[in-house]
């Protein structure tokens, strides 16, 4: 069970995320919707601590994740894989190595570290990567460079990387915002498959209500950092949506399309060293 308690993040005077409380049971697929700037990404990034919360706690199986440091934090990040809008693969490395990055924290001791740095992975680890790739029909591309793949393929490679972490939770930050409709479908299908077959909890940000309705067990709607709705897709009626955002469902979808074509997420100017 993943629990967010009063999670808040302020950037200067701006409250990006405002006392969010959520309880997510294991194996659920949750879609977080809202416009650009509603705080969806910040919320997700606080769960694996790529962004530090200003207030509040994140609990997983009763463990306070917000208090973790060093190797314990890295262990939590391994349990809680992340998928990014821009896939964040290493373009110049082959697909196989990109997927094996998911194993890095499963290689204990000095020997593990040294062999990792030399890119010396075992045959079992390579087989594991290939099996993951094969689930999404990508095994044949294993030795190609990541930048030779289409966006949809790259995102599925990123899902394979996440799977190799053997995570309990997957956080997907706008996984399909940079993809065309057909590729978006294959990626959402892949996430759904992972959620159903592997029992991994999926928490994903989405721009489109349609997608969230189609794929998620539960929808959380955010506006100005606050959770305005939390329930099943059926409960989020057009009337409810108008109450929250002041627009009809069609208008909401139009705005979402504009938002996604507008801009990719800004890149950090400096690596957060946590």
């Amino acid at each position: 069970m993943l629990e967010l308690q009063g999670l808040t993040r302020r950037f200067g005077d701006l409250v990006a995320v405002d006392s969010v409380r959520l309880v997510i049971p294991d194996g659920q697929m949750v879609g977080v919707i809202g416009r650009s700037g509603a705080g969806k990404s910040t919320l997700l990034r606080m769960v694996n601590r790529l962004t530090e919360p200003s207030e509040g706690r994140v609990l997983h199986e009763g463990q306070d994740v917000t208090a973790l440091r060093g190797t314990a934090l890295r262990r939590w990040r391994t349990d809680c894989a992340m998928i990014f809008q821009q896939f964040n693969l290493v373009q110049r490395l082959d697909v196989l190595t990109n997927v094996l990055v998911g194993r890095l924290n499963h290689r204990p001791g000095l020997l593990g570290t040294v062999t990792s740095l030399l890119k010396m992975f075992t045959a079992e680890e390579r087989a594991m990567a290939i099996r993951a790739l094969d689930r999404f029909d990508l095994a044949a591309s294993a030795l190609q460079r990541a930048d030779t793949l289409s966006g949809g393929q790259q995102q599925r490679v990123a899902i394979c990387r996440a799977l190799l972490q053997e995570p309990k939770v997957i956080l997907a930050d706008e996984p399909i915002a940079s993809l065309d409709p057909r590729n978006a479908r294959t990626v959402m299908d892949a996430l759904r498959q992972v959620n159903r077959e592997d029992g991994i909890t999926v928490l994903t940000n989405l721009h489109h209500l349609d997608t969230a309705r189609q794929y998620c067990d539960r929808i959380v709607a955010m506006q100005s950092g606050r959770v305005m709705f939390d329930g099943t897709p059926a409960e989020l009626t057009g009337a409810r949506l108008r109450e929250i955002y002041g627009v009809s469902e069609d208008e909401f979808e139009d705005q979402a399309s504009e938002d996604t074509t507008m801009r990719p997420r800004p890149v950090a100017a400096r690596l957060a060293v946590a």
Partner: peptide, 14 residues
């Protein structure tokens, strides 16, 4: 590009 670096960190890499 810092995005792949963030991805390795998010995967639990040192």
């Amino acid at each position: 590009d810092l995005r792949p670096v963030e991805a390795v960190r998010a995967a639990g890499g040192s």
